[in-house]
Computed example of a mutant assay.
Amino acid sequence: MHFVTYAPPPPLGRFVSLLWYYAAPELPDLLERVLPTGSMSLLINLAEDELRSYDGDDPARCRRLGGVAVCGAHAEHFTIDTAEQRLIVGAEFAPGGAFVFFGPETEALGGEHVSLDALWGREAGLVRERVLEAPTPDAKLRALGAALAARLDRSREGDPAVAFALAAFADPRRAYTVGDVTGQLGMPPKRFIRSFTEQVGLTPKRYCRVRRFQQALTSIERGERVSWAGVAAACGYYDQAHFIHDFRAFAGLTPTEYTARRRERNHVPLGG
């Protein structure tokens, strides 16, 4: 396995949190469940000019996309073909960061996978060609970063209220609620929810639920013996039962099943 990451500096780094290259020729050919993160990403399959996604875990319900695709902000798990991870490059957008690249389409992309050519036209194929032509993993990441920087539209930086809310929701010192944020902003809740959803692709309530779920995964990934009651309390769940219910809603698995079956964080093989 060869995994290379690059965190771009500003101004691109304000909107793209990570660029990554992954090569693993020995991966088994099976389906894999991907858990929601609440953020958007861009994927480029370097091995073949196609990406596939599945509704639920049924291989008969396959959606075939071009070799460059956008994964919108999800609040549900979805399924991918593990074979397509054998040689792939990706960009993880910062929460709300995709808006400067996709504008009003960001909300419509929520919960969806879309070929990039449907959004950028012929340029999508040119991005893949430039990344393919780059000779090394580091050069491929630089090529992708340059392509994204060229598309960065600073006039779309969006509502400052959304940036304030995202920073508040990310504050580890306090579990801010949507009501806390709108109260501090002095902003009508409906207007805030509308603006947040347009820029992030999820409603603020759903975004906060996914973020709390991801905090639980962080606790699990520390590798220590897990106390589910302790994880529930640390992540702000009312009790262990609510935590398990929410976890199953996002992962399609109980926390115990996830720890036993995961291949890596957010990825769970479905067979093999």
Rank of each mutant, 00 (worst) to 15 (best):
Y176N: 04
A83N: 11
F99D: 10
P172H: 05
G121R: 03
L31D: 05
A143T: 01
V178A: 13
W228C: 04
V268L: 05
T136G: 14
Y6L: 14
R142S: 04
V4D: 12
E224C: 15
F250I: 04
D171S: 07
R211Y: 12
L19M: 12
A91F: 05
P135K: 00
G252I: 06
T5V: 14
R151T: 03
A147P: 02
P269Q: 04
T5R: 15
F93T: 06
V68Q: 07
S41D: 06
G125S: 10
F169P: 06
A98F: 08
E257N: 05
G236V: 03
I220F: 15
D159E: 08
N266P: 00
H74E: 12
L65P: 09
P189V: 10
L119C: 10
L126T: 01
G96T: 10
G13E: 02
R142P: 00
F78Y: 15
L35F: 13
R191K: 09
E123G: 04
L152V: 07
W20I: 00
R142A: 06
F243N: 00
R122S: 05
E48F: 01
C62M: 14
G56M: 05
T259P: 02
V178H: 08
H77M: 04
H242P: 00
H267P: 04
P269W: 01
G183K: 13
P11F: 01
S115Y: 01
D138R: 14
A149Y: 03
A147S: 14
M1E: 05
A94E: 14
V89Y: 03
H245P: 00
S115G: 12
V127T: 02
F93C: 07
V162A: 11
G66C: 04
D55Q: 09
A150G: 15
E264T: 08
